[in-house]
Amino acid sequence: MTELPHPDRDEIRIAAVLHALADPMRLHMVRELAKLGEGVACGTIELPIGKSTRTHHLRILREAGVTWTVPAGTSRITSLRRDDLDALFPGLLTGILAARK
């Protein structure tokens, strides 16, 4: 499995992050990743969507700089880029995660 492209910290833009988090399904995925606190296989988070739609949402989050996704055997492990997001946009992720659903 090949390495997936991710933006460097200095390439992450607020508009892309907000766009990625504006979708309710992606926001749910980010909340679940924050609860788990560590990387998980893509299919671990239960969602009412198909595999291709899940892959699409994960790609949007990764390309926006919200998550890291790395290959691990036959799986892909996704984790939240909390350190990067907190350094670039202090309080943003905390506020979003604390907001009512």
Rank of each mutant, 00 (worst) to 15 (best):
L80Y: 12
D8Y: 02
E46V: 08
H57A: 03
I49D: 08
P48G: 11
R13D: 12
A99K: 12
A20G: 03
D10C: 01
A87L: 11
G43E: 13
L58W: 13
A20P: 06
A41N: 11
L4W: 13
P48F: 08
H57W: 01
P5Y: 07
A72W: 14
L4F: 11
I96Y: 06
A99L: 10
S75R: 11
R54V: 01
P7A: 09
E46C: 01
R100D: 15
D86G: 14
A34V: 11
R59D: 10
F89P: 00
L88F: 02
D10W: 05
T94W: 03
L88V: 02
T2M: 09
H56L: 05
V66F: 03
W68S: 14
G37D: 05
R82P: 09
G43C: 01
L33S: 10
D23A: 05
L58P: 00
V66C: 02
L61Q: 04
D23C: 00
M1G: 08
L33R: 06
G73V: 11
A22D: 07
E63Y: 00
M29Q: 10
R9A: 15
R76D: 13
P7K: 09
T69I: 14
R81N: 13
F89L: 05
A34K: 02
H57C: 00
P90Y: 02
T53H: 08
E46K: 03
L27V: 00
S52L: 09
G95P: 07
A98W: 05
H19Q: 09
E32Y: 12
F89I: 09
I14H: 04
K35H: 15
G95A: 09
G91M: 14
L58H: 09
G65M: 01
I60A: 07
P90K: 02
G91Q: 13
A41C: 05
R76A: 08
G43M: 05
T69Q: 15
H6T: 14
R31V: 01
G39Q: 09
T78Q: 12
I96S: 08
L58V: 04
